[in-house]
Design a protein around this nucleic acid. Sequence first.
DNA 1: TTGAAAGCGATACCAG
DNA 2: CTGGTATCGCTTTCAA
Lengths: 315, 315
Amino acid sequence: MTIYEVAERASVSIATVSRVLRGNVPVSPGTAARVRAAVAELRYRPSHLGRGLAERQHAANGIVFPDLSGPYYAEVVLGYESVAAELGRSVLILSSHGRPTARDMVMELAARVDGLVFCTRTVDDETVREVAATGTPVVLIARPPVADVDTITTENRDSAALLAEHLLGHGYRRVVFLGDADRSSDFAERFEGVRQIIPAIVPVACGFDENSGFRAAEAVRRQRPDAVICCNDEVALGLTSATAGSVPVTGWDDVMAARYAGLTTVRQPMRELGARAARLLDERITGARGEPHHDVLPTRLIVRSSCGPHPKEET
Amino acid sequence: MTIYEVAERASVSIATVSRVLRGNVPVSPGTAARVRAAVAELRYRPSHLGRGLAERQHAANGIVFPDLSGPYYAEVVLGYESVAAELGRSVLILSSHGRPTARDMVMELAARVDGLVFCTRTVDDETVREVAATGTPVVLIARPPVADVDTITTENRDSAALLAEHLLGHGYRRVVFLGDADRSSDFAERFEGVRQIIPAIVPVACGFDENSGFRAAEAVRRQRPDAVICCNDEVALGLTSATAGSVPVTGWDDVMAARYAGLTTVRQPMRELGARAARLLDERITGARGEPHHDVLPTRLIVRSSCGPHPKEET
DNA sequence: TTGAAAGCGATACCAG
DNA sequence: CTGGTATCGCTTTCAA
């Protein structure tokens, strides 16, 4: 089923069929009707391949994330898809998770989209730069700027400081930061924010998921901390299930499980993160904007019970 | 950057460039080397559009799900992406969530992939049939067969019966099934499985997410049930937070939060669901298989504390 | 308003 | 082993 068959059925040229389908050029009402009828009868769907080739665009953009098992990226992707679809673009996803060929897969993906979003822990800056160099617009989520691509992040330092102050208010002195600041700018900023208030903060390395948090329990205990600030909710949850709540703990993100676990955490607008990224990307693709944007979304401290009995009233 | 420029740089024809890139036809070592050098120097990436048009395939397939906010679909998509990528195909996602134009978006998507997976609550069977009629291979996840497309589901009836028996063992007599069996074959099967053991089961309509569960609390209380079997974990969790655990509750799926909430539930291999779907689809796309498959994955009852104090030992 | 024809970027068949 | 060229399905001048 091609445009030729439709043209033949409607007794017009393929040019005319194309015109009524795109609707940008005037076509006589009668002809248009005949074409539309033919399209309907033949259940014709234009080929994206042919169209894309002629228009030199894909009408699709991608997003690269490390994993989708935690709630964080699921929300980000959801927000992204939601806006992209609304903007009429298909969305391609790529999980870099542990794949040694991530870089190649990314370059491969870049060749079939009009724009690309990269999350943290997916590929290095060099790869991002390479993609950007091909002219493909790029937006970075929660990672430092590279070249002059757009970035969108959430506020970390201030809320981390606020969280630290809250813990200090509890009377805690010796506190551990559980997470790997070197592998995520988000974590690095949170660590800095905390250290601003608690200079003696003790960093303990850790992965990003529940299991990592669970397995870090031993290392954490060794520090005999009054409280533990975890890099994210999953790690906090994992640690909690290992310590059975014997140590005050805080997380970050406010995922669904956090509420049920009574986890004190910092809520960040994950869905909005993806949504804004999609918008920024679109502005670049359509050329509506030239200068790079670096947006920062607000976050909010959510105090629950995991940080211990509250010495004073707070929200 | 096209194949022509590479050809010129290597002083060969585009046909030769194509040959060394695809590697299916013999090319003299010397020529191949020159071409490869040119490709590297020019940082050439073949256009997927051009290639796809010539090969009449997209090297991509899609998956349509209702939403991504809950853990269920995130896991399914993760499993799907994982296998699809491994098979060398890009993956396009489409969330039908509440969009009135879902059907059009699906037909649109179908036109740019080699195969498509549909989850429940996305589009009706008619649309599925229409896509299948275009010759695009289709796989259905957790929904009844349509035409002769492949399907992959998880076991519901038996585990539901098992769950019901467990509740009976607790001494509960009056039990409510919270969920809308009409809108999901999974839910319908679970309801049937329960009813097989508890004929007097009382159905109470409800949505699919936490909020729905929360808001259903009133309607549930009115039934003064000894226990409530929820259609999934999210609803169970929502209900729990509204009833503060005053009523024994069970869920389904075993999402992360279920563990922290001590929710008795039935675990199903969500990731595997997506992974198998990707494999089934690939078999159809490559034509490796002709007859339709209808796979059923096993599930497992997970007893925790939400169903009340245990009268006898169980796992 | 409409048609003819030149691409868009690859693949693959047909000769040589 | 290599080059020329028709083709894939569609958009878009250029003329009529």
